[in-house]
């Protein structure tokens, strides 16, 4: 496990729509291994591996963007109100810190409220950047920010902000180096704006027009206290997607991944996810339809600032994908 790279990836600033810094970082790491590299109109980074002309045209997608917040109003006292970028839950926000592109830090807290509903509304939260009044605030309406939380390794577990989906980006970077002999035309798609509606992958898949598409993203687990029934456990291997709320995986892609797991002798799980989806759902509907599937890294506490994955699952995902593309 290259912890240095993963630290850089998870800590980079990259809320949906503002992925430049993540892109620059990934570009640096994939450039030596890619036959071509380009950035498209929506900011997707596409690293191309040329096959031997006998293989298929396959997209592997991991999204660069992370959830975050955006300033929607600055009040007279210098407190900031904000809107969500992607699936941000108010309960996760209270006491969290956020960081703006210019380095400004803020604390999210909850205004005093009379209603007793268990979860506050986003409009009841504010960001405190330590300003004394409106004119003292260093950021303005429209400024995006991301949550702050370092990467920690504890045993096999990795904990950080933005593992959704920098862990996917990490896997694709490592994978690119291992598939240099693949007969297939491979498009490593580092996509933008997944968290706000699978936007980057949709247009990139249109441009590439592949024979098959596989997203590499995180999925929730059923192994936490009182979790709803879900047969995915942290550390039991990467999860091969059967269905989620946005897509039914193409049986051919699912089978390809299952066969690869057997070939690579890595454990795997089958995933049925009730809430949530991946870039594959958008790629599937491209043009006349693209057979699509996904390989998921089991992840606890998704969309909180402390997402947790297992490093063995990550290593096995790389082996599995390398076997699938050999």
């Amino acid at each position: 496990m290259n912890l240095g790279l993963l630290t850089q990836l998870t800590q980079a600033f990259g809320p949906s729509g503002y992925e430049d810094k993540v892109r620059a970082l990934i570009q640096e790491h994939v450039a030596p291994w890619a036959d071509e590299l380009r950035t498209d109109p929506l900011g997707n980074l596409i690293a191309y591996h040329r096959g031997n002309g006998k293989g298929q045209k396959i997209v592997l997608a991991a999204h660069m963007d992370e959830i975050g917040v955006m300033v929607s109003h600055v009040d007279k006292e210098g407190y900031l109100r904000f809107t969500r970028i992607g699936g941000v839950y108010p309960l996760h926000c209270i006491g969290s810190r956020v960081r703006f592109a210019d380095g400004t830090h803020g604390v999210i807290y909850l205004e005093h409220r009379e209603d007793t509903s268990p979860s506050p509304k986003l409009t009841q939260l504010y960001i405190d950047v330590g300003a004394t009044n409106k004119d003292d605030v260093p950021v303005s309406v429209g400024a995006p920010a991301v949550f702050v939380r370092p990467l920690v390794q504890q045993g096999e577990r990795l904990i950080s902000k933005a593992l959704d989906d920098r862990i996917g980006c990490y896997i694709l970077i490592e994978l690119l180096q291992q598939v240099q002999d693949s007969p297939h035309d491979l498009y490593f798609l580092f996509s933008t704006q997944e968290e706000v509606g699978l936007r980057g992958a949709r247009t990139a898949a249109f441009s590439i027009n592949p024979d098959m598409a596989i997203a590499v993203d995180v999925t929730i687990t059923g192994d936490t206290p009182k979790a709803l029934p879900m047969a995915v456990t942290l550390g039991d291997g990467p999860a091969i997607k059967v269905q989620d709320s946005g897509m039914i995986a193409h049986p051919k892609v699912r089978q390809l991944l299952v066969d690869a797991a057997r070939k690579a002798k890595v454990p795997y799980q089958l995933e049925v996810l009730r809430g949530g989806t991946t870039d594959a759902a958008a790629m599937q509907l491209t043009r006349a339809g693209i057979p699509s599937g996904a390989l998921s890294i089991p992840c606890r506490y998704i969309h909180s600032p402390s997402e947790m994955v297992d490093s063995e699952d990550v290593a096995n995902a790389i082996k599995l994908l390398a076997a699938a593309l050999a």
Binding site: D40, P41, L42, N44, M70, V71, S72, H73, T83, R84, S140, V141, G142, R199, G200, R202, T203, A204, F206, S207
Partner: peptide, 22 residues
């Protein structure tokens, strides 16, 4: 600037057409 996070416009559809449109 429009207060972020409110409403939607035709840009939402156009920017996703074909290979993407700024």
């Amino acid at each position: 600037f429009k207060q972020p996070g409110i409403g939607g416009t035709d840009a939402g559809a156009i920017h996703l057409t074909r290979g993407g449109v700024p």
